[in-house]
């Protein structure tokens, strides 16, 4: 691997060898439902609690991705992953039985791309041939931890986003495969000094814009290098802020931007307010739909920019603002 510019990395030999996605019921009913490997009818996923349900989603996705290659967990050199729970327990407990090196990572809803970057570094650094990357979120574990009990009758404003229920897995490898991972940019923490936890999309938009700008500068490419620039959880309102900030930076991102939070759900007919969010959101969209589209040739190069809000309710109650971060990684069809 090479360092590029100020914050970026170019990988030599990292491929996306397999992927899997397992979702909850609402995601199955969304526009991308058919791209997920499996879904549960009920967000308990056959378990006794929400937390156990999220662990189940991760385990299912891990086993599914392995099965597609006919491999076992021992063929993986390491697991890298994270989720939104305190102490990333869903990932800890899902990985508990696997007995291989484990690196838990956290950057809120940007955990998906952060884990992919760390996994790619391990593969390109020749730590091992295969590294498994996982990230997830669950609507109820998230509501319970960051906001209110799920049966609470408080009114959510239209700026809120709906935390997605689902897990996405990627198996990164030095074995040549149809999808290559070439470029990544590690984000810096950007705090636009907002403190409304019910308005995350707009809060994270500056971080996404800064990472994209840095990425384009570091690699000396222009905005049309990618067929699709997919941001994480900006949803309806954050996407608009993102596009306008990029315009202020003299980048005209018009037809090749979309947001995972807008794609995962049908904003008109599903009750999701401004759209989807959570580390599972971009995980489901990228490992489910984007991978499929790349294989079919609908896209040649896609840049994933997952965004995360690095706060917790205690800091907000102490009067702090919300710092955000965005990590970027590219997926492209390999030349073979």
């Amino acid at each position: 691997m090479f360092a590029r510019g100020k914050n970026s990395i170019e990988f030599n030999n990292v491929f996306l060898r397999s992927s899997a996605t397992i979702s909850g019921p609402r995601e199955r009913k969304g526009p991308l439902g058919k791209y997920f490997d499996d879904s549960y009818e009920n967000s308990y996923c056959g378990e006794e609690s929400w937390e156990k349900a999220e662990i189940r989603l991760q385990k299912d996705a891990i086993l599914c991705a392995l099965k597609k290659l006919g491999l076992k967990i021992d063929d993986m050199k390491a697991i890298v992953g994270g989720d939104l729970n305190n102490q990333i327990v869903a990932t800890n407990y899902a990985s508990r039985d696997f007995n291989i090196p484990y690196l838990g990572v956290y950057s809120a809803c940007s955990t998906c791309t952060e884990a992919l970057i760390v996994g790619s570094l391990l593969v390109d650094g020749e730590f091992g041939e295969n590294v498994l990357v996982v990230s997830s979120s669950h609507n109820s574990t998230s509501e319970r931890q960051f906001r209110y009990p799920t049966e609470y009758g408080g009114q959510k404003p239209n700026s809120m986003t709906f935390t997605a229920t689902g897990a996405g897995v990627a198996i990164l490898s030095s074995v040549a495969s149809p999808i290559k991972i070439r470029r990544a940019t590690i984000g810096r923490i950007i705090d636009p000094e907002l403190s409304d936890t019910q308005d995350m999309g707009r809060t994270m938009a500056p971080a996404a814009a800064m990472t994209l700008k840095q990425h384009l500068e570091d690699f000396e490419i222009d905005i049309n290098e990618y067929d699709l620039i997919l941001t994480g959880d900006l949803s309806k309102y954050g996407s608009e802020v993102f596009l306008q900030i990029m315009k202020e930076f003299n980048y005209n991102v018009t037809t090749n931007h979309n947001d995972a939070g807008k794609m995962l759900y049908d904003l008109e007919n599903q009750e999701v307010f401004a759209g989807g969010s959570g580390s599972g959101c971009i995980s489901l969209v990228s490992m489910g739909y984007i991978v499929d589209a790349l294989k079919k040739g609908i896209y040649r190069k896609v840049l994933l920019i997952a965004t995360g809000a690095l706060m917790n309710p205690i800091m907000i109650a102490q009067g702090e603002t919300i710092p955000a971060i965005a990590h970027a990684i590219s997926l492209e069809r390999s030349k073979q």
Partner: peptide
């Protein structure tokens, strides 16, 4: 950021 965010209040 402040300029764009203020312009796009919900």
């Amino acid at each position: 950021f402040k300029k764009v965010l203020d312009r796009n209040t919900i």
